[in-house]
Design a protein around this nucleic acid. Structure first.
Length: 577
DNA sequence: GCCGTTTTCGGCCCGACTGTTTTCAGTCG
């Protein structure tokens, strides 16, 4: 049983309890447990049997949770979970994801109209039957119809790159308005989460009305969800929501802190404030006894007043950053300017769009010192993967190009397929000719976890393998990772001096943030690569960097921040950490 | 359900917007 299965159970129980209108703190506990389970780096089901204290020691996991997990592991189901599921039709749960409709009204609609599915809800709203429910009028009916449409279109979330690209023209449009003095994006975009629910934009202005009216004149606007004195919400392309908040200059820092979140981070921050006789809100930091405001103009000030080092937005997830800020031991996070090269990209030799020379020029334009050309091997015949002979020809071509290229060193590489039982798709004789060998799984995704783990570990034992590419195989919002024991694979990588890739391709981000942190803690080295299939894609590095920062990585953890000579010792396996 | 340097019981973050219920509940972030 995987952690995410257990997490899903707790999430579902929280959803049902919410619709039933039960104790909100109990619901919060369940959601927190689900969150914790998602983030753990060990298998909960086996741990609860073998080492229960380890689980019980985690803050947020108490007796009740231990009992429920134990029950599921022992008999395959949890009695309370089963009982709750029998009370509410499963089809009602997605209704909670609709914007503007919450558990209370869902419950009420169920009570009065027996509506339990998205389709029924939509039909009732269309037929103007929803307005017969107390507390719901014509307007709310319309809101619900819009919410259903948005839900269907977007399923609620967007990839980081999609949100950044859709938001960029809106931000440029706002920057053109002279009445807007300051402008920042907050929320999950600022924290660089891998998926984004909406774009939070904060501005200060002497003329709020003017700023809001300008926002409402944005040509890309699709619908206006609401507009008040301080907050206005619209949807733009593909149903992505953007919120504009108009703020006072003197509380801008407090507001930026508040709206950047995460919610979990802010809850802990406020509890901390409360213990110190302070109160933190989006308007500033206040003393509780005389309600005197003592700060909030800048974000740094908010943290300093709580005796904390300023915390970078990417770390604000309540994953230990507050304790580290208290001790003054936050990591010095990696920056894009630390990167000296890119070790994974494709060319016209296989499925890339640009030649080796064009890719090299693109790397040069970014100021890189080195670049690895890593086309596919022959197992991927549909993309024109290279066989042994073609690889050797490719190597000679790169040798020649190196002789007449200045300022950037081209490393000879291949992305070699890991075949069904862990063999590689090219002979060791050929691999020995290369500077960089990347191994990756592109087939047989659905084999059982134990076999997949063994398969990958076996590939890592090949003495020529340098990098394990996109280790989990997931595609954001499209495909779950394949099943395997992450920690075993990381351990095998470390033992064999293999580097783990953080693939920056925007729908991969694989390793993801929590995996990066685990890899670092275990002592693995990371390479942040773009897997570019065209020169223009080298810019995807920014998404890898964002994920690395969320994974607490520093420049020293990432091999492609090293000068070429040092990188070479690692590629030759003469050194590792 | 979780937790404890005020507590093993009684708390658990804070404020704005919307629509409709004429005084406020529901929802969101």
């Amino acid at each position: 049983m995987e952690n995410r299965d257990l997490a899903a159970m707790f999430e579902e129980m929280a959803d049902i309890l919410e619709i039933k209108g039960e104790n909100p703190f109990r619901i919060r506990s369940f959601r927190r447990v689900a969150d914790i389970l998602h983030g753990l780096d060990f298998n909960v089901a086996s741990t609860v049997m073998e080492n229960p204290d380890k689980l019980r020691a985690i803050p947020g996991i108490g007796e009740g949770t231990m009992r429920k997990i134990g029950e599921v592991v022992a008999v395959g189901r949890c009695e309370e979970h089963e009982r709750l599921r029998a009370e509410i039709p499963a089809s009602m749960l997605p209704l909670l994801r609709l914007q503007g409709l919450g558990p209370k009204r869902i419950h009420l609609i169920w009570e009065s109209l027996r509506i339990s599915t998205l389709d029924e809800l939509e039909a009732a709203a269309r037929d103007q039957k929803l307005r017969t429910v107390p507390g719901i009028g014509a307007k709310t009916e319309g809101t619900i119809l819009n919410a259903i449409a948005d839900y269907r279109r977007a399923q609620g979330r967007f990839r980081l790159d999609q949100a950044l690209e859709a938001g960029a023209p809106l931000l440029a449009f706002l920057r053109d308005e002279p009445s807007i003095v300051r402008l920042e994006t907050a929320g999950s975009i600022r924290r660089r989460r891998e998926t984004i629910g909406d774009i939070d934009i904060l501005v200060t202005t002497a003329e709020p009305r003017k700023a809001i009216d300008h926002f409402l004149r944005y040509p890309g606007i699709r619908s206006v969800l609401g507009s008040g004195e301080t907050k206005t919400s619209i949807t733009i392309s593909k149903g992505l929501q953007a919120d504009l908040r108009v703020l006072e200059e003197k509380s801008f820092g407090a507001a930026l802190q508040y709206f950047t979140g995460s919610k979990e981070h802010n809850v802990v921050l406020r509890e901390r404030a409360k213990r110190r006789g302070l109160k933190v809100s989006e308007y500033g930091v206040f003393r509780v006894d005389d309600d005197q405001k003592i700060g909030g103009e800048t974000e740094e000030e908010v943290y300093q007043l709580l005796d904390l080092q300023p915390i970078p937005p990417e770390l604000r997830e309540n994953r230990g950053e507050i304790e580290r800020a208290e001790n003054g031991t936050l990591p010095k996070l990696i920056e894009e300017s630390d990167i000296r090269g890119d070790l994974h990209m494709h060319t016209t030799a296989s499925d890339g769009r640009d030649t080796v020379e064009a890719m090299t020029q693109a790397a040069l334009a970014r100021g890189y010192e080195y670049v690895a050309i890593t086309d596919h091997s022959k197992a991927l015949s549909m993309v024109g993967g290279l066989d042994e002979e073609a690889v050797l020809r490719h190597c000679r071509e790169i040798d020649l190009l190196n002789e007449r290229t200045r300022h950037v060193r081209i490393l000879k590489g291949m992305e070699v397929d890991i075949l069904g039982e862990g063999q590689l798709d090219l002979s060791n004789e050929v691999l020995a000719e290369l500077d960089v060998v990347i191994a990756s799984v592109h087939s047989h995704f659905s084999m059982p976890s134990a076999r997949m783990t063994e398969r990958i570990c076996r590939a890592l034992e090949n003495p020529y393998v340098n990098i394990l590419a996109h280790p989990t195989g997931r595609l954001i919002l499209r495909r779950e990772p394949y099943a395997f024991e992450l920690k075993e694979v990381f351990q095998a990588a470390i033992q064999n001096r293999v580097i783990l890739e953080l693939n920056s391709y925007p729908d991969r981000l694989d390793l993801k943030d929590t995996h990066c942190r685990l890899a670092k803690e275990m002592g693995a080295l990371i390479s942040i690569n773009t897997d570019s299939h065209a020169g223009s894609m080298l810019r995807f590095m920014r998404y890898g960097i964002a994920t690395a920062r969320r994974g607490w990585l520093e420049a020293e953890d990432v091999v492609n921040t090293y000068p070429l000579a040092r990188l070479r010792t690692i590629l030759k396996k003469e050194a590792y950490r």
